[in-house]
Design a binder for these strands. Structure first.
Lengths: 96, 96
DNA sequence: TGCGTTCATGCGCCTATGCGCATTTAGAAA
DNA sequence: TTTCTAAATGCGCATAGGCGCATGAACGCA
């Protein structure tokens, strides 16, 4: 159901996090916190939401938890994500 | 900003309404109400939300208000909508 | 003008959700 | 074991949002 995907993406901080992860790299919570100017608990919880929606996966690496886009996201959801990312980027260019 | 689009779509009744309108035809509120088993005020409010998000447009026709997908929805948002519709339909087929 | 139909909206209620604060857990290094 | 950093989570609070109920507004028709 795309509903959970949409709900997960329909929040500013979460969408911003996804956009950062869209670089294809792994990012720890501390990195996302700093870039998005969010508190630790807030950032952690949003990442849980994205994880439960299947949009991201995490991995323990020493004391860090590395998040990245879920590489196994079903094609039909990946298409939604791509469209959203493109629109967000386009809007950004227009706003500038 | 796709945020408003996503928020508008991230609600079951609204997404269902959009899926009905995806047939390209006009539908009055009374029609949507019946198909979705929703009360009148509930349906009306959801349509307002979709309208404000720019996803649909309405038109007075005697005592009816006809809703249809916004034909002038910017391309980048249309792409999101199409991806969502396709995913929803695919999920439906899988569930069956 | 009066009546029926369709739709919008003011109001209050209730739940969902985002947040900060504080604490706990996990792991590394001393 | 102690101490540090990173991350998750329990708790309570405040707001957002979805809902029903009732009313009002728009329109057609007699």
């Amino acid at each position: 159901m795309p509903l959970q995907i949409l709900t997960a993406l329909a929040e500013p901080t979460r969408l911003a996090a996804i956009r950062i992860l869209a670089d294809g790299q792994e990012h720890c919570v501390c990195d996302l916190m700093k870039q998005l100017d969010a508190t630790q608990s807030r950032m952690s919880r949003h990442m849980q939401t994205l994880k439960q929606a299947g949009l991201v996966v995490d991995r323990r690496d020493a004391q860090w938890v590395r998040y990245r886009l879920n590489p196994d996201l079903p094609e039909r959801y990946r298409a939604i994500l791509d469209a959203v990312l493109q629109a967000a980027q386009a809007d950004e260019r227009i706003a500038a």
